[in-house]
Simulated scan of single mutants.
Amino acid sequence: MIQIAIISDIHANLIALNEVLNDIKNRSIHQTYCLGDLVDFAPWGNEVIEKIKNKGIPCLLGNHDERIAFDIPIVPLVHHDQKETANRLIAINHSKTEIAAANKNWLASLPYNLELTYRINEVTKKILLVHAGLLSNDTYIYESDLKNDTAKELKDKGIDAVIMGHTHLSYIQNHSNVLFVNSGSVGRSRETDRKATYCILTITEKGIEAEIVKVDYNINEVAQQIYKSDIPDFYGDFLLNK
């Protein structure tokens, strides 16, 4: 049996990240992968990047990381209202100013996806890690979306499971013998409880099983630190469900 932890969408929330990493350590899981989006919306963008770097956690390039690393223009999203669009512009521009040049360079070096191959006895299992979709860092794949074409493409490549983030909504779904998992968000969950969320994969010769883990952290402290920073209060209110 092999267990790995998958984290995603920390969004500069160092307090949530620390609690999740402690939870992983307490479970004696020795492999952790990150699906990206280390920056934006909380005050600790540099600290989060440096923690992931220093711990040697393999990490993907999320869409927010990409925007900061390459100074990509900020384009409004169709699912955001006028208020969120305005606050998002301020928050991302804040990251563009605050993230250190060395950390931007490190983000720019990250891969878009990782394919993991595990062999247990005579059985091989392949897992694809992506930030959002197979071809785009801006694709939203929800639990309710049809996955016939995606499942076929993955099966043709011999992939047994695909793990993603980006939507900040966790789920586990089997489709045509392919396991689809959204690991949720560590630092900016859109789920009602706002808890830090990640997933654990258990790989055996019989197959791959996924578990969604929710971790308590001091959400109020994060919100208060956002209020004290130049990041819009909108993001503190979001965490407190205001």
Rank of each mutant, 00 (worst) to 15 (best):
E115G: 08
K125L: 02
T150V: 14
W106F: 13
S109D: 10
Y235F: 15
V123F: 02
G56A: 07
S229P: 12
N22D: 14
D160Y: 03
T202P: 05
Q225N: 15
N18T: 07
S109N: 10
T167W: 01
A210G: 02
N93G: 09
S144G: 02
E19W: 02
M1E: 05
A102R: 12
D233E: 15
I203K: 04
R27G: 12
T117A: 14
G187M: 03
N105P: 05
S170Y: 07
G165L: 02
H94G: 06
V215A: 13
L129R: 10
I212H: 05
T32P: 04
W106A: 09
S183F: 04
E122Y: 00
Y235A: 12
S183R: 13
E221H: 08
V162T: 06
S95P: 01
A161G: 02
Q224P: 01
K214A: 03
I200M: 10
T167Y: 00
Y140S: 04
D156C: 01
N137A: 12
N121K: 05
F70Y: 12
A102Q: 15
N87T: 13
L77N: 08
L239T: 05
C199F: 10
L154P: 04
H94N: 11
Y140Q: 02
S144E: 11
V39Q: 03
I231A: 11
I159V: 11
K157F: 02
Y217W: 08
I72L: 11
T167N: 06
E84G: 00
L179I: 10
I231K: 11
W106Y: 12
L107Q: 11
L169T: 05
D23I: 00
Q224C: 09
I159E: 07
I208N: 08
I15Q: 14
P76N: 10
F180V: 10
V181H: 05
G56N: 14
E211V: 01
T197R: 13
N46K: 08
L35S: 08
C199N: 11
K147W: 00
K206W: 00
S109A: 13
N174G: 12
R27W: 07
K195W: 01
E221C: 11
N218E: 13
I6W: 01
T124N: 10
I226P: 09
V178C: 13
T204I: 02
K125M: 01
T139G: 03
K25R: 10
V215G: 03
V186Y: 01
G56Q: 03
D138R: 06
N241H: 06
I90K: 14
A108I: 10
N177R: 13
A12K: 15
C199H: 11
Y33K: 07
I74H: 14
H166A: 10
N46R: 09
V130R: 15
L239S: 07
G184P: 06
D216A: 06
H11N: 07
G133A: 14
W106R: 08
R188G: 14
I2K: 02
L128W: 02
N54M: 05
F234Y: 15
I74C: 09
I7P: 06
Y217G: 09
E84C: 02
V123A: 09
K157Y: 07
P232L: 03
D40P: 05
R67A: 15
S144F: 02
A100T: 07
I208V: 03
A86P: 06
D216R: 09
A12Q: 14
G187H: 03
N174P: 11
A101F: 07
K228C: 07
V222P: 03
G165A: 07
R27C: 09
T204W: 02
V222K: 15
A132P: 15
K51C: 09
N182F: 04
T192H: 15
K96P: 01
